[in-house]
Design a protein around this nucleic acid. Structure first.
Lengths: 157, 157
DNA sequence: AATCATGTATCATTACAAGTTACATGATTC
DNA sequence: GAATCATGTAACTTGTAATGATACATGATT
């Protein structure tokens, strides 16, 4: 199974959006995320539907953050992505006639359930503002000033 | 990504093995698991290497449980399967130069880490004997007697 | 009217568990 | 010791879902 990297990718995109003084086009974001504009549109669609970002067409259009980072939890983003399948491990076919298979599946399912609960509660406890703080810490550790890295996409030559 | 169902499948197989009075061939197990003999051999190979089961060739050969179920934890089985990738979600590429991407990936990775910890500790707390008890409970709920369902594969016509 | 940017559909690519086939090797039976 | 049974293992195909890529319609701006 190939890995689903939409979650970290979207988090990354939001951090960049927060730093922009103007709208970012899908192409610009695609460059930052090392991917394709169509992928950006597809992935961000859910966030737009949930009101985390807005997108506008035409000249000077693009993606803009619609809420302060502190009001966006990672759990909200996960939901906005459609709560994608978390596990590569399955718990078998729930419609089994074999009672042993039922017992085996139930045990696996229960372990997955508690893990998923932990995952979701970890996501609920983190906001994008926490990530932004982490980013700034990383900047300062390198002796850089985050303010120097803000920019207006419309000023790109 | 396609789901990895080796875990529940192996648990299922072990419950059946426990109930057999003689060795079970890969073909017999494959029938019980609705799969293929080659898949059974491939999947059980790890369990054999870890000493949970033995396999013998030739007439009357097959798979036999090598330990009491109470000494087999689900965590041990997960390891024996090679600790397969648990998540369908990725946490991005760890080798990123972008500090925002690093922050995004780290947050995702941390949520996955705690979830994985919960998963593994849930698996450690369960033994195959617990599953066997669950199976017997399910039997009794249907008014059946588990003892009537033990059988010797060599007696199959 | 021309250009820019999103929205969306479609097809190709990739990764990996699982299904499948084939055959060598070793154990048992006669 | 030849036939048969069963595992061990390699090689190939299949199924599936995210991702990459391309194309085009639609709406906004200049």
């Amino acid at each position: 199974m190939r890995q689903d990297n939409r979650m970290p990718r979207v988090l990354h995109a939001l951090l960049h959006l927060d730093q922009m003084t103007g709208p970012a086009t899908s192409d610009l974001l695609a460059g930052m995320l090392n991917t394709n504009a169509a992928v950006v549109r597809r992935t961000m669609a859910g966030l737009r539907d949930q009101g985390f970002v807005t997108s506008t067409k035409g000249h000077g259009g693009g993606w803009v953050l619609a809420k302060p980072l502190s009001e966006i939890t990672l759990a909200g983003i996960y939901d906005a992505l459609g709560a994608p399948k978390l596990f590569a491990l399955g718990c078998g076919n729930e419609e089994s006639h074999c009672l042993m298979e039922q017992a085996a599946n139930a045990a696996t399912a229960e372990a997955l359930r508690v893990a998923s609960e932990t995952f979701l509660s970890a996501l609920s406890a983190i906001t994008m503002a926490d990530l932004a703080r982490d980013y700034e810490t990383r900047m300062k550790e390198l002796g850089l000033n985050p303010d120097d890295y803000r920019f207006d996409a419309s000023k790109i030559p």
